[in-house]
């Protein structure tokens, strides 16, 4: 289903959607810059604050690791999720409903799929920069004990792609700003329960399968296994799960976008 959808995509037109966003943010560089600032704060708060209180926790590959080493890769994944969801829900909703931007775009040869891909592409370009910076800071602070950590960057991109696609799909179902309360709740549930702050083993047995359903869990498990240097076959499973999210999200987003705007 998606292949037929993607075959007809003209990369130049999807690129024009990215170009528009680049142009807008060239003036808003301070917003871009602020994106780098945020992860530093989180690492700082975790390192000197919570890390001190917690001590060490079980590592994915066995043994224990200091809490900051454990939680930093999760923050990398969470950051990728947040960046992707904020851009594709709040910002896209504004463009869709209030700025009537997409009405104008779809009057050109640009198709809904190209539009969705363009918005997601921009979102990834941006969050890719942040993830790289975050990973750099982690390395400097000694939170990446393994060289596998280099692969955490493409992993973060994949996480971003998955959430951007899901976010776009979700946005097409939102009716008003008030519905964003639900979005916040969804983000919060994943943030708190997706194995971000604690190993999966800390949860009661009945909760674990639920945790494993969330895309963020797979993102966190993937980045954590990479930065702590213990990737195994399970990592491929996480990748596969995220790829499914990408395909599904993109397919729903393009279809719904067409239903909403091309009536």
């Amino acid at each position: 289903m998606l292949s037929t959808l993607l075959l007809r995509v003209d990369p130049r037109r999807a690129g024009a959607v990215v170009e528009r966003n680049v142009l807008v943010h060239r003036r808003g560089w301070i917003v871009l810059l602020s994106g780098f600032f945020e992860p530093f704060l989180y690492l700082l708060a975790l390192g000197i604050g919570l890390g001190h209180l917690v001590g060490s926790v079980p590592a994915p590959g066995g043994g224990t690791v200091p809490y900051p080493v454990f939680v930093a890769p999760a923050m990398l994944a969470v950051q990728a999720m947040n960046a992707a969801l904020t851009e594709t829900t709040f910002n896209v909703f504004g463009k869709l409903k209030y700025m009537r931007l997409y009405d104008a775009v779809l009057a050109t040869p640009v198709t809904p799929t190209e539009l969705a891909l363009g918005e997601i592409g921009w979102c990834l370009a941006r969050s890719g920069l942040y993830s790289a910076a975050f990973l750099g800071v982690m390395a400097v602070l000694g939170l990446t004990p393994s060289w596998w950590a280099v692969l955490a960057w493409p992993a973060a991109l994949l996480i971003g792609f998955a959430f951007a696609a899901l976010g776009m799909a979700l946005t097409t179902f939102l009716r008003s700003w008030q519905d964003f309360d639900y979005v916040v709740v969804i983000m919060m549930v994943m943030f708190m329960f997706a194995g971000t702050f604690t190993p999966l083993s800390a949860y009661p047995a009945w909760v674990r399968p639920l945790v494993e359903l969330t895309p963020l869990y797979h993102g966190v498990a993937l980045t954590r296994s990479l930065t702590t240097g213990s990737p195994d076959l399970g990592a491929l499973g996480h990748v596969a799960y995220l790829v499914v999210c990408v395909v599904l999200g993109l397919w729903i987003a393009a279809r719904r976008m067409a239903r909403l705007l091309l009536t």
């Binding site: 919570l50 209180l53 917690v54 001590g55 926790v57 809490y67 709740v185 919060m188 549930v189 943030f191 708190m192 329960f193 702050f197 604690t198 800390a202 949860y203 009661p204 909760v207």
Partner: peptide, 14 residues
């Protein structure tokens, strides 16, 4: 969500 998340998880370690 917050209290359950912390209570179930990181709270125990702290």
């Amino acid at each position: 969500i917050y209290l359950a998340g912390i209570g179930l998880g990181v709270g125990g370690y702290v």
